[in-house]
């Protein structure tokens, strides 16, 4: 594979089903735009891959402002899945992504199971897409707005609809707003997912006590950033032990040390999200940091540390 030489004698390559990555560091959906926006700071060719902003069949305008608010060591967002829609994604955004020299993972969302299937069908065979990531944290409009990702049956139904429509690897992105995430993980594995990524944002809320109003126009929003890392790490560890497919760890990753924790907990790759906002070079620094760590530890390959957390048997 390309760029192996550039990795300072350490093998950083990992494989997510049929998806080969030059290193395990991806950028998370909704935090890196469509790949072009942060090129003043990051060389996309060095990344393991880019997960593009979530797209739907039709364009979506998103929620009214305020859409973001800072919280302790984190932030809440209620962007409302604003996106350009699949047609403009293919015509305007994909050409740039395709020539970045890294893997392109397209994140998709829908209101109904059928919509996920149709969207995946539209992307099937489109050149330059290396994998799909399916956001199942969206409300199921036919089921009273309950998120697909909180019910094993609908999570599985979405997975099957997407799996049936495309040949590329299908990564299902899990919602943490459930009582037992391993149940959902097993359901999507059984439905044909090639990998799972987790976590999406944790549902949260903030109130301005002076105006007595919620800080977000949408009232509630998704919590992200370093504040959620321990929760995300715990879930990744649980899911990695519950399923046989690869796990991609997401949630508050801002340093190589954070990324290494997720790899040790069982993640084959990681995604960097909110950190891109305040430290746009974070993803490249994490790649360098993982390489330096492995060199110091005398580990020839990053694959040697995946899942190697030492838990004492009771």
């Amino acid at each position: 594979m390309e760029n192996v030489i550039d990795q300072g004698g350490v093998d950083l390559r990992v494989r997510i089903g049929g998806l080969h990555l030059q290193n395990p560091v991806l950028t998370a959906s909704g935090t890196f735009g469509y790949g072009r926006e942060l090129t003043a700071f990051v060389n996309p060719a060095r990344l393991g891959g880019i997960v593009a902003k979530g797209i739907s069949l039709a364009p979506r305008p998103g929620n009214p402002p305020p859409r973001v608010v800072e919280t302790a060591c984190g932030m809440l967002n209620a962007i409302g899945l604003e996106n350009v829609g699949v047609e403009r994604f293919i015509s305007d955004k994909l050409p740039f992504l395709r020539q970045t020299g890294t893997r392109v993972i397209v994140n998709i969302l829908g209101d109904t199971v059928e919509e996920y299937g149709r969207l995946a069908g539209r992307l099937a065979g489109v050149e330059g897409i290396d994998a799909l990531e399916v956001n199942i944290s969206c409300p199921n409009v036919k089921k009273g707005g309950v998120a697909f990702g909180t019910v094993p049956e609908t999570a599985a139904a979405v997975t099957m609809a997407v799996r049936a429509a495309v040949d590329v690897p299908v990564i299902v992105k899990l919602s943490p707003n459930v009582s037992d995430i391993t149940v959902i993980a097993r359901a999507v594995e059984a439905a044909g997912a090639d990998a799972v990524s987790l976590i999406n944002t944790l549902l949260g809320m903030a109130i301005d006590s002076r105006s007595r109003k919620p800080c977000l126009a949408n009232v509630v929003g998704g919590l992200s950033g370093p504040a959620i890392k321990p929760v995300a790490l715990r879930m990744v560890w649980q899911v990695a032990r519950a399923v046989a497919i690869p796990v991609i760890g997401i949630g508050g990753i801002a340093t190589a040390g954070d990324a290494l924790e997720f790899l040790l907990a069982g993640a084959t790759a990681v995604q960097v999200g909110t950190a891109n906002f305040y430290q746009p070079r974070a993803s490249e620094e994490i790649i360098d940091g993982i390489r330096d760590f492995l060199r110091q530890e005398g580990e020839p390959s990053v694959r040697n540390i995946i899942g190697q957390v030492r838990v004492d048997e009771q």
Partner: peptide, 10 residues
């Protein structure tokens, strides 16, 4: 309010 200022968070 801005999370990034760079056009990525929307």
């Amino acid at each position: 309010h801005m999370a990034c200022g760079l056009g990525v968070c929307l």
